[in-house]
């Protein structure tokens, strides 16, 4: 164990924690939004993310990247990366809506209990993982380096690189847009109403099926964008990439209080930081152990999440 690294590398660990946290946050929002309207943990959400990473890869392949190119200039990069992000968002968004229709809607119409929906969620997750295992030959797939990752400037010990800046700016922009959608649009108000009192929402004229479909769409689009950021940052994927990322994002959502949007954001950044600092102290191999430990501890001792009642009231 080496605690001195926390001091000497503080800024660097902090920056990486925030970057990783931003990616978790985009995925965690999908868990938390769906939980809000359905009271269901959508365990297949991590596979919606995984599907997005392969959509990103597909775009670069279609564009003719082999992985051996030099990084491209900023102008071309932005055009290319926006294209990749949009395709991933469309792929993940439509997959999430399809998932809702196939795996959940029929059960809901039949008035099935929550356990049935949970089993359906896990089944859909297995199905997608195995499908992609076959489609991708169980291989590791590398993503071409699109951006020069040399440091742009330094803040204390932190090397600020272009990919980290893109992730941070993109993620914060998206969080702001989501806030506007939830607070300012009709369907956003529908999501809040269904999350807080579904029966009364119907009495006020909210079409619950439409709101649920829209919620899956938003969650899927966020996961798709997250997958593009993930590929830019980590530059590799595999059929099971959703598992650990999904656990981290889910842990972040639970840490902040599941169903609570601001909680999911806070939990994600907290988890990103905890992972970076604990990896620095204990070694990288301990990262996932720490994540699982946090998940178990929160579920055991504070299932409503760190923010409890105060934020709970302002939920969604």
């Amino acid at each position: 164990m080496d605690f001195s690294i926390v001091v000497s590398e503080f800024a660097s660990l902090f920056l990486d924690g925030i970057v990783v946290g931003a990616i978790y946050a985009l995925v965690a929002l999908g868990y938390t939004l769906v939980y809000g309207v359905l009271r269901l943990i959508n365990f297949a959400h991590s596979e919606i993310f995984m599907l997005g990473t392969f959509a990103c890869l597909g775009v670069t392949m279609l564009l003719g990247y082999t992985g051996y190119e030099e990084p491209i200039g900023i102008g071309l990069f932005l055009v290319t990366f926006i294209l990749i992000t949009v395709v991933a968002a469309v792929a993940s968004g439509s997959a999430a809506m399809l998932l809702e229709v196939v795996a959940y809607r029929r059960l809901r119409r039949k008035g099935a209990n929550r356990l049935s929906s949970l089993i359906s969620a896990i089944g859909a997750s297995f199905f997608l993982v195995e499908l992609f295992r076959l489609l991708t030959d169980s291989k590791d797939w590398d993503f071409p380096r699109l951006l020069d990752k040399n440091s742009l400037f330094e803040v204390s010990s932190a090397y600020v690189t272009a990919d980290k800046l893109v992730v941070l700016i993109g993620a914060f922009g998206l969080m702001f847009a989501l806030d506007r959608i939830i607070q300012g649009t009709r369907l956003g108000r529908g999501i809040r109403a269904v999350s807080q009192d579904e029966k009364t929402a119907v009495l006020m004229g909210v079409d619950v099926d439409k709101v649920i479909a829209f919620t899956f769409l938003i969650g899927g689009v966020l996961a798709g964008v997250a997958s593009a950021f993930y590929m830019l940052f980590y530059e590799a994927t595999k059929f099971n990439v959703g598992f650990l990322l999904g656990i981290s994002a889910f842990t972040a959502a639970v840490l902040g209080g599941i169903g609570n949007i601001r909680g999911a954001l806070a939990g994600s950044f907290a988890l990103g930081l905890i992972q970076q600092f604990s990896s620095a102290i204990l070694g990288y191999n301990w990262r996932d152990v720490v994540t699982f430990l946090i998940l178990v501890l929160v579920l055991l001792f504070k299932p409503t999440g760190l923010f409890g009642e105060a934020i709970q009231r302002a939920r969604v």
């Binding site: 009192d197 029966k199 009364t200 009495l203």
Partner: peptide, 14 residues
């Protein structure tokens, strides 16, 4: 037709 339901059905977080 609109209803003020039993238990009032206020959206607590709005």
């Amino acid at each position: 037709v609109c209803q003020a339901p039993e238990g009032r059905g206020i959206f607590p977080g709005m």
